[in-house]
């Protein structure tokens, strides 16, 4: 008969085996991260200091900060930066207001909350290219359903995608349609996490609805909402797909965002060095703004 409780087999030290185990678990993710993110980023960083072109080939000549200076001083870049800023502020502000309002209204319902939430999330699950394509058809001035509806109400045709102001507005509206549910979802999570006893205490004190919202709901949801705004702002800052499908940056270049412009620099003339510098600068802008934002969030938490 064998001993039912066998002593552990002698082997290598436990410390070493744990370590190898850890390395074994971590290395696939690390390799993926290094090869797909860190290495391309470092290569792009290197190329940003050269005049390299992916199609022309030839040696990558070192030109120092030439590309960075050119990008930072280019009036074309300044124009796209302004367009991007207007778009980000407009879209994110609208999404925040709408998303929070919808979440607040849903949170007050006791029945059908799950179904409503699921329905509201549908736009977010669609591919931006699909969203762009069907909105392009819907907003078509001649054949689109939006102008058709306006016509049946006795209103005139609107050139949604071919006039400067309406084209940018259309981008904001479509992005808002797709991404308001994201803000709503985060806000809803915040709203459901507010302890009920606070509202009960406020009710006993006969606090008004507005007072409860202002002093309980908003302060408790605010930090979570700001994180949602941060994510959306970063996403909106690098908007490409909707512009590509809906307006191609037009009329003229009036809806060209920074990402769309980088794409043109990178692939129309294959100016890889300039495009790399442009991309690195965009990453830097996001990192700096995010850091400032996170500091504000931390301060808010401490307060």
């Amino acid at each position: 008969m064998s001993d039912p409780v066998a002593p552990p087999a002698p082997g290598r030290s436990r410390r070493v085996s744990d370590r190898w185990l850890a390395v074994g678990f971590i290395s696939p993710a690390m390799l993926l991260l290094l090869s797909m993110s860190v290495f391309p980023l470092l290569w792009a960083l290197y190329l940003s200091f050269t005049d390299y072109s992916a199609t022309r080939g030839g040696p990558a000549r070192w030109i120092g900060f030439g590309n960075y200076t050119a990008v930072l001083t280019s009036s074309q870049v300044h124009q796209r930066a302004l367009t991007t800023l207007i778009y980000v502020v407009g879209a994110v502000a609208l999404q925040t207001v709408l998303g929070f309002t919808i979440a607040y209204l849903i949170s007050r319902r006791t029945h059908g909350r799950g179904l409503l939430t699921t329905l509201f999330l549908v736009p977010m699950m669609l591919s931006p290219v699909v969203v762009g394509l069907f909105w392009r058809f819907m907003l078509d001035a001649q054949f689109g359903v939006v102008n058709s509806m306006l016509g049946s109400l006795g209103l005139g045709q609107v050139e949604w995608l071919t006039q400067r102001r309406t084209a940018l507005l259309s981008l904001v509206v479509v992005d808002t349609w797709q991404w308001t549910p994201f803000i709503m979802l985060i806000a809803l999570a915040g709203l459901t996490a507010v302890p009920k006893y606070l509202y009960e205490a406020a009710s006993i004190d006969r606090a008004s609805e507005w007072f409860r919202f202002r002093t309980i709901t908003l302060p408790l949801v605010w930090p979570l909402l700001l994180i949602a705004v941060l994510f959306r702002a970063i996403e909106a800052f690098r908007l490409f797909d909707l512009v590509y499908i809906l307006t191609s940056g037009g009329p003229g270049v009036s809806t060209e965002t920074l990402s769309f412009h980088v794409y043109k620099v990178a692939f129309l003339g294959f100016n890889t060095g300039t495009a790399s510098a442009y991309g690195i600068l965009m990453v830097l802008v996001v990192i700096i703004l995010t850091q400032l934002y996170l500091r504000y969030l931390n301060k808010l938490k401490e307060d």
Binding site: R56, T162, R164, P251, G252, L268, G269
Partner: peptide
Amino acid sequence: VPEYARLVDIENTNVNAALNGAK
């Protein structure tokens, strides 16, 4: 010419701007 893609983009965007009242 090798620069064709950029030349045509410049022309496209500017003619489109003129046709749509942006320039």
